[in-house]
């Protein structure tokens, strides 16, 4: 039996670190922007102030790390959706970054494969 494997090469990894409880909002925003999956890990943060001065906003030590693999084409849209949904322009809410990937392998439905084949 011959098996074929689809290797995606034009992919990026988006990592977002936010306060605990925010991951649902981030995953939902990523999905609305076209992302097909996400992974959420619980973590402890450090090096942040417990309170942000005049604002009086507590910065939780408990964090959630969301990782999402996206195509390079989708990257900007997913990045922007996450940034806005997570209110990452507000001090202490979190941050995100993108790591280039060499390749990725996963299951892709045939109808999607047909669309992306050159």
């Amino acid at each position: 039996m011959t098996r074929t494997m689809t290797i995606l090469t034009d992919v990026k990894l988006i990592t977002c670190i936010v306060q605990r409880g925010m991951s649902d909002i981030i995953v939902k925003a990523a999905r609305e922007a076209g992302a097909q999956g996400a992974t959420v890990t619980y973590a402890k943060g450090s090096g942040v102030r417990e309170r942000l001065g005049l604002l009086g906003v507590a910065v939780e030590v408990d964090k959630e790390i969301i990782t999402i693999v996206v195509s390079s084409q989708q990257m900007d849209a997913v990045f922007e959706h996450i940034y806005l949904a997570g209110q990452l322009d507000v001090p202490g809410m979190g941050f995100l970054y993108v790591t280039p990937l060499e390749k990725a392998a996963t299951f892709i439905p045939n109808d999607v494969l047909d669309k992306i084949k050159p």
Partner: peptide, 19 residues
């Protein structure tokens, strides 16, 4: 990829590589 073929085919896995 060979070790996790079953999970990949079921759409329950992903594998990626970076530098």
């Amino acid at each position: 990829t060979q070790r996790i073929t079953h999970a990949l085919q079921e759409g329950n896995a992903i594998l990626f590589q970076g530098v």
